[in-house]
């Protein structure tokens, strides 16, 4: 009897939890994105280095024109498998403002690996002014800042449609996108076939680029992911062993009571 009650309560909790997930979805009015296979999912997931490098190329050549990545530093790119000199070269591609110097003046210098990614606009107002009032968000934590963020990114990049469904009128400067909440997005379709020339010769199809840049952004949001998972495996195994010992000791100590 008691067990049935407990079961009831547990199923009520499960139901509530499930319903909560669904509700957050409906509130955002963005449809649940289709789940993709990602190498970094699961208990043993790791980032595919080649895909990360291609994704970085897509970010650099396509996204970086409007979207910042201000929490990531150029030195972090070493984690993608680049050498120290390559990292230095990427950093040196931008000019950053530094100073003041001894004369009290700000000056421009080449980027250094210790610098964080330079944002394309100095502030939000400038970004809006340059983009018809729409604000291209910083992408540093974008996959954590959206529900099912990783699949959502991929869906967003791959579900632009030339024509909206019948009966839907697109305002000037808006594009139809199935993944976006409200299906009207101000972002110009960013990916076209061969938008980048992949250094490793991979064919730059839209799904390929979307997959690569999403992988890169997932890394940018959670650079600790691989360390976290490997440490997590060790911690859980340790705790299971420790708990087994504690249980055995508990049995042993309590055995003289009965």
């Amino acid at each position: 009897m008691k067990n049935i009650k407990a079961l009831l309560a547990v199923s009520a909790i499960a139901l509530a939890a499930g319903a909560v997930t669904v509700s957050s979805l409906s509130a955002a009015t963005a449809p649940k994105p289709k789940a993709q296979d990602w190498s970094f999912q699961g208990l043993f997931g790791t980032f595919d280095r080649a895909s990360l490098q291609r994704g970085f190329q897509v970010y650099k050549n396509v996204c970086a024109g409007c979207h910042g990545l201000k929490h990531v530093a150029y030195r972090n790119l070493a984690a993608l498998g680049y050498t120290e000199d390559q990292v230095k070269a990427f950093a040196a591609e931008v000019e950053v403002q530094d100073g003041p110097n001894d004369n009290g003046e700000m000056y421009a210098r080449k980027g250094k690996p210790s610098d964080r990614f330079k944002s394309p606009f100095p502030n939000e107002q400038a970004a809006r002014a340059a983009n018809n009032g729409a604000y291209p968000p910083d992408l540093s934590v974008i996959t954590k800042a959206r529900l099912n963020g990783i699949d959502y990114m991929y869906a967003l990049l791959t579900t632009y449609k030339e024509e909206p469904p019948k009966g839907m009128k697109m305002p000037e400067g808006m594009f139809y996108n199935e993944a976006f909440a409200g299906q009207q997005i101000a972002m110009v379709p960013p990916l076209a076939p061969d938008a980048v020339q992949y250094q490793d010769g991979t064919k730059a199809t839209v799904p390929q680029m979307a997959k690569d840049v999403t992988t890169f952004l997932a890394w940018a949001a959670e650079p600790e992911l691989e360390e976290r998972k490997s440490m997590g495996r060790a911690v859980i195994i340790f705790l299971v062993v420790l708990t087994a010992f504690l249980y055995a000791l508990k049995r042993k100590i309590w055995s003289d009571l009965h």
Partner: peptide
Amino acid sequence: DGETRRDFLTLATAALGVGG
């Protein structure tokens, strides 16, 4: 027997716990 077993268990568990 019980005494040896508990001694070992206590020591091993304490070592694991303190190490952890």
